[in-house]
Design a protein around this nucleic acid. Sequence first.
DNA 1: ATACGTTTGTTGCATAAGCAACAGATGATG
DNA 2: CATCATCTGTTGCTTATGCAACAAACGTAT
Lengths: 190, 190
Amino acid sequence: MLPMEEKLDPRVKRTRNLILQSFSDLLAEKSFDSITVLDVTERAQINRATFYKNHFVDKYALLDYWVQQGFRHEIEAHMLDACHYTPDNLRILLLTVCEFLSKVRTDCMQSQRQFEPMIEKQVKNQIYELLNIWLGKMNSSISTEIPATVAAWAIYGLASHYSHAKKRPALESFVEEALPLVAVNLEQFA
Amino acid sequence: MLPMEEKLDPRVKRTRNLILQSFSDLLAEKSFDSITVLDVTERAQINRATFYKNHFVDKYALLDYWVQQGFRHEIEAHMLDACHYTPDNLRILLLTVCEFLSKVRTDCMQSQRQFEPMIEKQVKNQIYELLNIWLGKMNSSISTEIPATVAAWAIYGLASHYSHAKKRPALESFVEEALPLVAVNLEQFA
DNA sequence: ATACGTTTGTTGCATAAGCAACAGATGATG
DNA sequence: CATCATCTGTTGCTTATGCAACAAACGTAT
């Protein structure tokens, strides 16, 4: 999907994973605001200078990367990359986004209301890219941008709605109910 | 105890730990002979050249280091470093050595008969160094070398005997029975 | 106000780690 | 015997990481 940084230097991969793990652990313990770069690097057992020199301009860039990688990981875990559009894959995608937003909400100490725009931007964009690839594979002559945009916004909106709900309904039934409204815009590709 | 390489470069510590973990996993899967350096470095996600350049001359040096670190880890886990001679600490020490040899025997695929001399050398030496420190702290005027030597050999011998037994007796009772024979040589320090 | 500690970014230099390539040893296969 | 593949060590060069030090920004307390 998105241009994967797969052929990264092994040292870079290793260091970033250490930082991500450290950051995840810290987010489970305290608020983003109270986390310092030194906190992250100490727990990750890497040098603070390395954090800045080769990886992130500041801790907000790390937060960005954390969301991006976290969502990407879920997509890959469900094998949604490297497949194409089917109603069932769309169902899994909606399910995955709902679970991801819910998980972020429960895994982090402090409410991250301030970061919602950033999360939305990262996640919605990845949904869009993924749908574009899915629809492109259907080698239909129809342009994919409009349907992909509509579906991406709708999916993110539904997941956001779900994850914010006071008393969340059963995820399965929520998805069953909402899915047709998204699918209707994509059926021309099926 | 033994001159700890504690102030090692963090990169070295990290790399060695990755190698050790990889090696442990592999030993649980196949025999030492069938393990190649490439196996170890690939699983550890480090470069084969790095293995040789900065760490080990060959895979036998790794095996050496593996035993040494493994035993040292157990000693530290039982907080036997940084304490002094008491009959109870001696009991814990004997227990620890028995458990360690048994664990090595069960964690590795192939029987490691060929490596027993190396294991014996590493472990017995660490026992000796530890006892020397223990007895030295008792600021008695008595020389520690002879008693430490006798006890180190006896302890290793007992643990080796225990770990080789066809049907191992209960560890606790074995230790209770054997301990006095070792303690008698050290009681002058108590 | 002022001093103090903490955090943030940044820099220059030293060193570990990655990579590609190589020669030699070994072992299996024809 | 020859060939092929694999594994072993080693080398020169590049790049990432560690470290110490610094100036600036910030909050806190006296």
